[in-house]
Design a protein around this nucleic acid. Structure first.
Ligand code: SF4
Ligand code: SF4
Lengths: 142, 142
DNA sequence: CTCTTTATGGATATCATGTATCCAGAATAT
DNA sequence: ATATTCTGGATACATGATATCCATAAAGAG
C-alpha cells in the first residue's frame, strides 16, 4: 500500500518537464535534476511515451516534451501508465478467483477506498501539481 | 499500492472470529475455514494479540476471541497492527529525506489520498463489515 | 502427574516484484 | 561522418511479502 519509487520518479520527471512544457528535456538532464538513475529513467519514459503522455525526439538536442497540456494530464493517467490498471486488491487465489468472493465482508470497503483514491487522482492534474509547487507546510495528520 | 495478502488474511480471520465473538476459535479452525496457511496465520495472530485486538488462550479448547467489541475495532486498527503506521509515501533517499521534500509538487496529493483513505478505514468497524456480509453486487467502477 | 492440545518464538526458506544496470542498435541534427 | 540521444532487450540485485519448520511453553482432561 505504497507509492512506488518508480511512480514517484515518473511524477518527478513530468513535473520537471511540465515546468517548461515546450522545451525539450533530455533524459540526462531530467536524471540529474531529479536524482533519478539514468538507465532506469529510460524505462519509465518509455511507458509515458507509449501512453501518449510525452513525446520523444531522438538525436542531438533531442529529448522529451509533454504531448498534452498539463491540465489534460491527470495523476491517474500517470499512475496507470506506470502501474497499469488501478486495483488495490486482487482477489485471486492460486487457482483463480478467491472462493469468498461472493460474500466477502471486506471487499466493499476496499472498493470505497479505491473509488475515493481514483477520484482524487483523477481530479488532480499535472497543472494543479505545478501550481501547488513551492507550497509547503501541509501537515501529515495521521 | 495494494492490499497485501497478509492484511487480507488478518481481516478474514477477524471477520470469522467476529461472527461468533464469544466462542474460542483455534488457529486450525480459522486456517481451514478461511484458507490461510496454518503456520503463517500464527504470525498474523501474534500481531493482532500484541495490538490488543484479540485475546489468545493456549491449551486444549484454546484459541482466539475478540478482545474488544466488533464496533470498537476499526479497519485502521487492523491495518496498523499488520502493516504498522500508515504511510503511502516514504520520502526517503538512500541518505535520508528526499532533497525535493521542501517544495514537492506531488506530496500534497498523496497526502490527500492518504487522509481520505485513513478516514474510510477509521470509519469502518469490524461490526460494519460483518453486517455488510452477504451483500453482493457492488460494482467496480474504474 | 501425564498426556494431549494449542499457542509462542525464532530461524529460515521461497518467491515475487520493485529497482537498477549494461549494452548494442536506431534515429537524427550538425 | 560524427556525436548525441532515445530504444529495446537482457539481466542483475535488493527488498519485502509469503510460507515453512521446529522446539518450547502453557493449560485443560483424565
Ligand atoms: S477475502 Fe474478500 S478481499 Fe480477500 S481475496 Fe477473497 S474476496 Fe478478495
Ligand atoms: S519527490 Fe516528493 S514525494 Fe517523492 S520522495 Fe521526494 S519529497 Fe517525497
Amino acid at each position: 500500500m505504497q507509492v512506488t519509487k518508480t511512480l514517484d520518479y515518473a511524477v518527478r520527471s513530468l513535473t520537471y518537464i511540465g515546468h517548461e512544457p515546450i522545451v525539450k528535456h533530455s533524459m540526462k538532464e531530467i536524471s540529474e535534476h531529479q536524482h533519478i538513475p539514468l538507465n532506469y529513467l529510460a524505462k519509465i519514459m518509455r511507458r509515458l511515451v507509449k501512453k501518449g503522455i510525452v513525446r520523444s525526439m531522438v538525436g542531438p538536442y533531442g529529448g522529451y516534451t509533454l504531448r498534452k497540456a498539463p491540465g489534460d494530464i491527470s495523476l491517474r493517467d500517470i499512475y496507470e501508465a506506470i502501474e497499469g490498471e488501478i486495483r488495490i486488491v486482487d482477489c485471486m487465489d492460486g487457482n483463480g478467483i478467491c472462493q469468498l468472493h461472493e460474500a466477502c465482508p471486506q471487499l466493499p470497503v476496499w472498493d470505497r477506498v479505491q473509488l475515493s483514491m481514483v477520484k482524487i487522482l483523477e481530479e488532480t492534474t499535472l497543472e494543479q501539481m505545478l501550481s501547488d509547487r513551492g507550497i509547503r507546510g501541509f501537515t501529515r495528520v495521521n
